[in-house]
């Protein structure tokens, strides 16, 4: 009996060793923290979580890889998915740089101490000051303005203002992106409410009773309008509409006269980053002429005030609401909650 036990023990130990070695092999795929390198020669890896548009993010990734030789691991998702991922990975953070499509979200990360300030970023002084942090916790390298996108075949007389969309002629014709997924839609809702106060909810309630459908992320909301299944998207990101329009799709966009919300796309370095030098180089790259041109080519608004766009209004020409950013940060979560409650009913 004892002999058997001994044998069994021996075998167990062997198996355990086997299991351990298997797990060690599988560990080999995990990015090892790169040693801090000198500023001139960068190497190793950088993990970036970036909100869309996909093509722009991919171009930036490729451009940066080519320029520095750093290998970029990129997770592309909606702002909501990136925030969820960051929260889920809190115990074992992975991301070095995070690019979001919502300012209050970035400010929220800063307030909870998850950002690493980088004050010396090149060209930071040329950014629109209102959308970037003075201490360099986050920089809004690009912007998008929210408008009303419409199908030009179906809508000959486009609405002028947000409240026009509550009219019965548009019943069941309108989509709105889901703020739990789309950072810019979240910015719109919180921004609008920060100006209007509690009475702002009336607009959303009226929209809901006019049959407005909450339709997933931005592309999911816009695609039915392109194909003509729906007539309009409220709080549509402008760049996506312009992109489709440039391709020849029958869509266009207006910015309501009352003013809209500009949704900046802030980039930040995480405090837990193991590749700080690479991350800083990435931030410099985002603010460089090269990327700013890519931004304009993707129909987004450049974050730098000295880079101009052609054929459409620049950030300073779009009518905007006087949003209260402190209120926005404080109430973002509850606004999203209440918003989805209204539209899910």
């Amino acid at each position: 009996m004892t002999l058997l036990n001994k044998r069994l023990k021996k075998r167990l130990i062997m198996v355990m060793a086997l299991v351990a070695s298997i797990s060690i092999i599988s560990c080999g795929t995990i990015p090892k923290p790169a040693p801090a390198t000198a500023e001139v020669t960068l190497s190793g890896k950088l993990t970036v979580y970036s909100a869309g548009p996909n093509d722009l993010a991919t171009n930036i990734q490729k451009g940066f890889e080519k320029k520095t030789g750093v290998q970029v691991e990129m997770f592309q998702g909606t702002t909501g998915k990136i925030l969820a991922r960051l929260e889920a990975e809190k115990a074992k953070p992975v991301a070095d740089v995070v690019v979001l499509a919502s300012l209050p979200s970035a400010q929220g990360l800063m307030k909870s101490g998850m950002t690493l300030p980088y004050k010396e970023a090149k060209n930071a002084d040329k950014l629109f000051p209102q959308w970037s942090d003075q201490d360099g916790n986050y920089y809004s390298y690009s912007l998008s303005a929210l408008g009303i996108a419409y199908n030009t075949k179906l809508v000959t007389n486009p609405p002028k203002d947000w409240t026009d969309l509550t009219k019965p002629e548009w019943k069941d014709q309108i989509n709105i992106p889901d703020p739990a997924l789309s950072g810019s839609a979240a910015d719109f809702a919180t921004g609008y409410l920060s100006v209007k106060g509690d009475s702002g909810w009336d607009l959303f309630k009226q929209l809901k009773s006019n049959g407005v459908l909450m339709a997933g992320a931005n592309q999911e909301a816009l695609d039915p309008v392109i194909t003509g299944a729906k007539s309009m998207v409220i709080a549509s990101v402008d760049y996506m509409t312009y992109q489709a329009k440039a391709k020849g799709e029958p869509v266009d966009l207006i910015y309501p006269a009352e003013g809209t919300v500009i949704s900046p796309r802030p980039a930040l370095i995480t405090k837990t980053s193991n590749n700080v030098e690479n991350a800083k180089a990435f931030m410099d790259y985002l603010l460089s002429d090269e990327v700013q041109k890519m931004v304009a080519d993707a129909y987004l608004l450049p974050g730098r005030s000295d880079v101009k766009v052609q054929g459409r209004p620049s950030a300073s020409e779009i009518p905007t609401l006087k949003v209260n950013s402190d209120w926005m940060i404080a109430n973002q979560k509850s606004v999203i909650q209440k918003f989805t409650d209204i539209f899910k009913k």
């Binding site: 909606t78 998915k81 990136i82 925030l83 929260e87 889920a88 739990a180 459908l213 999911e220 999203i336």
Partner: peptide, 22 residues
């Protein structure tokens, strides 16, 4: 389901685990 505003357990689980706030 998302198109028609019909939400079920699986989609809600995914929402609560992968879109913010989780």
């Amino acid at each position: 389901g998302r198109r028609i505003g019909y939400y079920v357990i699986t989609t809600e689980i995914q929402k609560y685990t992968s879109s913010w706030p989780i």
